[in-house]
Measured scan of single mutants.
Amino acid sequence: NQESVVAAVLIPINTALTVGMMTTRVVSPTGAPAEDIPRLISMQVNQVVPMGTTLMPDMVKGYAP
């Protein structure tokens, strides 16, 4: 099972992602793949992402898996 990126903390809208904001988990439906964490760092979210929420590609500005 592939791990997806999950918010480790509450991420406010327009916040640039840091490694400490993200964790990985096997979830369904799958979100952004765990191996993309290095690409996701410094990208901004376009909505509030509550802690424990799977990071879906459409939540991150300019990100395409």
Rank of each mutant, 00 (worst) to 15 (best):
48 V>N: 15
54 T>D: 03
59 M>T: 02
41 I>K: 00
22 M>G: 08
53 T>A: 15
22 M>I: 09
10 L>Q: 07
15 T>S: 10
3 E>I: 10
26 V>T: 09
39 R>N: 07
36 D>C: 10
61 K>H: 13
65 P>Y: 07
64 A>W: 13
17 L>P: 05
65 P>H: 09
46 N>R: 08
15 T>N: 04
12 P>D: 10
52 G>M: 05
39 R>C: 12
41 I>A: 02
34 A>C: 09
50 P>I: 09
7 A>L: 07
57 P>W: 15
2 Q>Y: 13
61 K>A: 12
9 V>P: 00
31 G>C: 05
33 P>N: 04
42 S>Y: 07
11 I>E: 00
35 E>T: 13
49 V>G: 04
35 E>P: 03
50 P>K: 10
46 N>T: 13
19 V>G: 09
47 Q>F: 09
43 M>D: 02
56 M>G: 03
3 E>V: 11
65 P>K: 10
52 G>D: 06
57 P>Y: 10
46 N>P: 01
24 T>D: 08
57 P>A: 10
3 E>P: 11
39 R>A: 07
35 E>A: 14
34 A>Y: 04
38 P>Y: 11
29 P>L: 03
54 T>G: 04
4 S>W: 08
30 T>A: 15
59 M>I: 04
64 A>N: 14
39 R>D: 06
37 I>G: 04
20 G>N: 13
4 S>K: 02
32 A>I: 15
55 L>N: 02
42 S>W: 08
38 P>M: 10
63 Y>F: 06
26 V>M: 13
36 D>V: 01
2 Q>C: 15
20 G>E: 15
18 T>E: 13
64 A>M: 14
63 Y>E: 03
50 P>W: 09
7 A>I: 09
39 R>H: 11
36 D>N: 03
1 N>F: 12
14 N>L: 09
60 V>G: 03
31 G>V: 01
50 P>R: 11
18 T>P: 06
47 Q>H: 02
41 I>Y: 00
61 K>G: 06
51 M>N: 05
14 N>G: 12
17 L>T: 06
16 A>E: 11
62 G>Q: 06
27 V>E: 05
25 R>F: 08
38 P>V: 10
13 I>V: 13
17 L>E: 05
19 V>D: 09
15 T>Y: 02
33 P>W: 07
10 L>G: 03
24 T>I: 10
43 M>Y: 00
64 A>D: 11
6 V>T: 03
54 T>L: 03
5 V>I: 14
47 Q>I: 09
17 L>W: 01
31 G>M: 00
62 G>W: 06
27 V>G: 05
1 N>A: 14
9 V>C: 12
3 E>A: 13
63 Y>N: 04
55 L>R: 00
39 R>Y: 11
49 V>A: 03
49 V>Y: 05
32 A>Y: 15
20 G>W: 13
4 S>V: 07
42 S>T: 11
30 T>P: 15
52 G>L: 07
28 S>A: 11
2 Q>T: 12
40 L>A: 02
39 R>L: 11
51 M>G: 05
61 K>L: 11
50 P>H: 12
38 P>G: 11
49 V>R: 00
5 V>E: 01
6 V>K: 03
2 Q>R: 10
63 Y>S: 03
19 V>E: 13
64 A>I: 15
41 I>F: 00
49 V>D: 02
8 A>R: 11
3 E>K: 12
25 R>M: 10
37 I>Y: 04
58 D>G: 13
25 R>N: 08
6 V>A: 01
33 P>M: 05
40 L>Q: 03
15 T>H: 05
35 E>W: 14
28 S>F: 15
41 I>S: 01
44 Q>H: 15
18 T>A: 10
65 P>G: 10
45 V>Q: 00
52 G>N: 07
11 I>R: 00
57 P>T: 05
27 V>A: 05
53 T>H: 13
7 A>P: 00
39 R>P: 04
34 A>I: 07
42 S>C: 11
16 A>D: 06
50 P>N: 08
3 E>W: 11
41 I>W: 00
15 T>D: 03
18 T>M: 08
16 A>I: 15
11 I>V: 03
10 L>K: 08
37 I>K: 01
60 V>A: 02
21 M>N: 08
12 P>K: 10
2 Q>G: 15
45 V>G: 01
61 K>T: 15
5 V>N: 01
62 G>T: 01
8 A>Y: 05
57 P>M: 04
62 G>R: 00
65 P>Q: 11
13 I>W: 05
7 A>F: 08
53 T>Y: 11
22 M>W: 00
4 S>Q: 03
35 E>D: 11
31 G>H: 05
26 V>L: 14
52 G>Y: 06
1 N>H: 13
47 Q>N: 02
39 R>E: 03
16 A>Y: 15
18 T>G: 06
40 L>N: 02
16 A>V: 12
23 T>Y: 10
51 M>R: 13
16 A>F: 14
14 N>H: 14
2 Q>K: 12
62 G>I: 05
46 N>A: 07
50 P>F: 09
10 L>E: 13
51 M>H: 04
13 I>G: 03
48 V>T: 15
22 M>E: 09
52 G>I: 07
24 T>G: 08
40 L>C: 04
27 V>F: 00
48 V>G: 02
19 V>S: 13
3 E>M: 13
20 G>Q: 15
9 V>H: 02
23 T>V: 10
62 G>N: 12
47 Q>Y: 07
40 L>T: 01
26 V>E: 07
25 R>S: 09
4 S>F: 07
45 V>S: 03
27 V>P: 01
25 R>H: 08
36 D>W: 08
62 G>S: 05
26 V>D: 07
25 R>Q: 09
20 G>S: 14
38 P>D: 09
24 T>Y: 07
30 T>L: 15
36 D>F: 05
65 P>M: 10
59 M>F: 06
56 M>L: 10
8 A>K: 12
22 M>K: 08
43 M>I: 07
28 S>P: 03
21 M>F: 06
65 P>R: 10
30 T>C: 13
65 P>N: 10
45 V>I: 04
31 G>P: 01
12 P>I: 09
18 T>H: 05
47 Q>L: 09
53 T>K: 11
54 T>K: 01
9 V>A: 02
53 T>Q: 11
62 G>H: 07
47 Q>G: 04
48 V>K: 13
55 L>Q: 02
56 M>A: 02
45 V>W: 03
28 S>V: 13
47 Q>C: 14
8 A>M: 08
20 G>L: 12
50 P>V: 09
52 G>Q: 04
8 A>P: 00
48 V>A: 13
54 T>C: 05
2 Q>M: 12
8 A>W: 07
45 V>D: 01
39 R>V: 12
38 P>N: 10
34 A>M: 05
14 N>S: 06
36 D>R: 01
44 Q>A: 07
62 G>K: 03
60 V>M: 02
33 P>Y: 06
54 T>F: 00
23 T>H: 08
60 V>F: 06
11 I>Q: 01
18 T>N: 06
24 T>L: 09
30 T>D: 10
2 Q>N: 14
39 R>M: 12
